[in-house]
Every structure is written in structure tokens, then in C-alpha cells.
């Protein structure tokens, strides 16, 4: 009977969240070529976010996956192997500062009928987003970790939440590394041709 390649490691390691931060060129199909690396190992992506980085022309993907450490390390190396990926970093939960941004849409009629909603939202630090005065809904916005944003949703749901949406995790590392320094290192790397 064949055993899974990674059986041994998974026994000694626990499943947990990892944040993967990827710097890449802004090329078409990049997102697809990254996500298929997870698909191949049947790893579910908990959240994903794509944005600009502080370096012009360089894109940053922030991906959260739940897996074991050794698998996460292998996946990160395979991502880094993609030609257009500049660099890829793996973080444990305590190595990043991170947030998600959520929107909660509630009918004005509900709000009038249940004034306690405003108390709940302000307790959670949610703010009212500015909308057109004639709009029939109120939109609350909240920044926080997934669990706390989810908790507010749970508390609002009995009153009726018309729509809820949350961004993927965005995260900055606690490390002192500067992306511009990294870019200089990549530009000046001597690993492009074989040593003489």
C-alpha cells in the first residue's frame, strides 16, 4: 500500500493558517499560474488579495492557506519558481500585521425599527459609509481580523443583513526588510548566467 509522500510530516505538524506574500511582475495570467499550484495539491485558498506594491510596476499577492508548515514551505518554493515571480514569503500568524475589510448592507427600515443596531456596530468599531441620501440602505464598514468581522455579521444577521462582503486578508510583515532593497538585490544578482 502506497503512503502519502507527506504523511510523516503531517503527524508532527498541526494544520494552521499561513500568509503567503508574493511579489511579481504584472503579467497576464499570473494569478492563474499561482493558484494552480494550490489546486495541484488540493489546498483550499482561504483568502486572496491582489494589489499594487510600493514598487512601481510590481504586484503583490497576499494569500492565506490552511495547511501544515512543510507543505506551505514547498508550495512557496514552487511559487517562487514561476518565472515572473520576483519573490515569495511565508509567514506564520505572529509574523504579520494583517486586516480584512468588510461591508454590511442593512435596510434603513430595519435600522429605524431597531435602533440598537447602531450601538452594536459602534461597539465593534464599524463606521457608516457615506452614500446618496435617497439610498434605501445603510452600509457599515469595518476593518479587523476575519473572526471579529464575522462576529459582527453574526450579531447583525437576526435583524437582516441584505449583503455582506469581505476583502481578502491584506498583510504587512513584521520584518525590517525593504522591498526596494530586495529589488536592487534581484536586479544586481549574478545568478542569471553560469559562473565562469
Amino acid at each position: 500500500m502506497g503512503k502519502s509522500l507527506y504523511t510523516d510530516n503531517s503527524n508532527s505538524e498541526t494544520m494552521r493558517n499561513f500568509t503567503i506574500s508574493i511579489l511579481s511582475e504584472n503579467s497576464i495570467g499570473m494569478l492563474h499560474s499561482i493558484t494552480i499550484i494550490f489546486t495541484r495539491r488540493k489546498i483550499n485558498i482561504e483568502s486572496i488579495n491582489a494589489s499594487d506594491s510600493e514598487v512601481p510596476g510590481v504586484y503583490r499577492y497576499t494569500i492565506v492557506i490552511k495547511t501544515i508548515r512543510s507543505t506551505a514551505e514547498k508550495v512557496v518554493k514552487q511559487i517562487e519558481k514561476l518565472i515572473d515571480v520576483l519573490s515569495s514569503f511565508l509567514y506564520e500568524e505572529d509574523q504579520v500585521h494583517y486586516q480584512e475589510f468588510s461591508l454590511y448592507k442593512i435596510s434603513k427600515k430595519v435600522l429605524v425599527a431597531h435602533p440598537e443596531i447602531e450601538k452594536i456596530t459602534s461597539e465593534h468599531g464599524a463606521k457608516i459609509m457615506l452614500t446618496e441620501p435617497e439610498y434605501e440602505f445603510v452600509i457599515f464598514e469595518k476593518t479587523g481580523h476575519r473572526e471579529s468581522n464575522r462576529k459582527l455579521l453574526n450579531e447583525l444577521q437576526p435583524y437582516g443583513v441584505s449583503e455582506f462582503v469581505s476583502s481578502g486578508r491584506i498583510a504587512v510583515s513584521k520584518s525590517k526588510r525593504e522591498t526596494t532593497t530586495l529589488m536592487e538585490q534581484l536586479e544586481n544578482s549574478k545568478c542569471n548566467v553560469i559562473e565562469a
Binding site: L86, S189, K190, N192, V193
Partner: peptide
């Protein structure tokens, strides 16, 4: 082509 900034085929 002999250089791509995101690709480092010969690690030292």
C-alpha cells in the same frame, strides 16, 4: 536574452 530580473537560474 541573458537576464530577467525575476528569474535566477544559476544559484551560487
Amino acid at each position: 536574452c541573458d537576464k530577467i530580473r525575476s528569474y535566477h537560474p544559476y544559484p551560487i
